[in-house]
Design a protein around this nucleic acid. Structure first.
Length: 206
DNA sequence: TATGAGATTGGCT
DNA sequence: GCCAATCTCATAG
C-alpha cells in the first residue's frame, strides 16, 4: 500500500448558483476546483487543472447540430454531467454549462489526484501518479466515470460532485483546444501554468 | 444503406 | 512515429 498524497482540507460542495452562467467563464472557474467521486470502494478526489470550453454556436461542440440521444445532457442546466464514448474505447467527462435547452459544455481534460490515489492506480493499471488522470480518457477511467453518470446533477447530493478547494490557481494559462479540426483557432483551453498534471502544451499563450 | 471521421490512448515498430 | 481499438452520427450515394 503506497501512501496517498496529502489531500488537504476536504472540498465543499459547490452550489449551482456559484457556477458562472457563461461557458468560457465556467471553464476558467473550474480550474483549481475539485471533482469528487464518493465511490463504493472509497472516495476519490482530483483537483481540476485543465479544461476546454465548447460554447453555444461552436461547430466543434457536440451540441452544434442539435439534440440527439447521445448529447442530450449538454442541453441540461449548468452543473449536470455529460459523458460520451469516443473512438470506440474511451469516455470523456463534461459539465453542461448554460441554461436548460442551450447546449454547451466544458470538457475536463486533466486532474491532479488528491485522494483515493491507490484506487485510481488500480483502475488505471499504472504506477505513475503523473499519468493517472492526465488526458480526458484517463481522467474518466481513473475516476470510474462512464455513461452511468451521463445526465447526473453534479450540484445535487449524488456520489459525483464538484467541490471548492482552498488552493486557487495564481494564474490561468490559455491555448487552442487539442485534437480539433473545426474551430481549431479558438482559444478555449484553460490550465494551471506549470502544473505537471496538465496534458499537452503548457505555455502556448497565457 | 454505407462509409468515414472523431473533444483518445496504449502498444508496437 | 504509426496504428488498432470499434461507438455514434453526419454525410454521401
Amino acid at each position: 500500500m503506497t501512501k496517498d498524497t496529502d489531500p488537504g482540507p476536504p472540498p465543499r460542495r459547490l452550489r449551482r448558483t456559484e457556477l458562472p452562467c457563461d461557458t468560457v467563464d465556467l471553464a476558467r472557474y473550474l480550474i483549481g476546483m475539485a471533482l469528487v467521486h464518493d465511490h463504493p470502494d472509497g472516495t476519490m478526489t482530483g483537483r481540476i487543472v485543465e479544461t476546454e470550453a465548447y460554447p453555444v454556436g461552436d461547430s466543434s461542440g457536440h451540441a452544434f447540430r442539435g439534440l440527439t440521444p447521445r448529447n442530450q445532457s449538454l442541453f441540461l442546466e449548468r452543473g449536470h454531467a455529460y459523458v460520451y464514448f469516443i473512438y470506440g474505447c474511451h469516455f470523456c467527462f463534461n459539465v453542461a454549462s448554460e441554461t436548460e435547452g442551450a447546449g454547451a459544455g466544458v470538457l475536463l481534460r486533466a486532474l491532479e489526484p488528491r485522494d483515493g490515489v491507490e484506487l485510481m492506480r488500480q483502475r488505471r493499471g499504472t504506477a505513475r501518479i503523473l499519468d493517472l488522470a492526465r488526458g480526458p480518457g484517463r481522467l474518466a477511467t481513473a475516476m470510474d466515470i462512464d455513461r452511468r453518470f451521463d445526465g447526473v446533477d453534479l450540484c445535487g447530493d449524488g456520489p459525483l460532485w464538484l467541490g471548492a478547494l482552498d488552493q486557487r490557481p495564481t494564474s490561468i494559462g490559455t491555448s487552442v483546444r487539442i485534437g480539433l479540426s473545426r474551430e481549431r483557432e479558438r482559444v478555449r483551453r484553460f490550465y494551471e501554468p506549470g502544473n505537471p498534471f496538465v496534458s499537452g502544451p503548457k505555455r502556448l499563450s497565457t
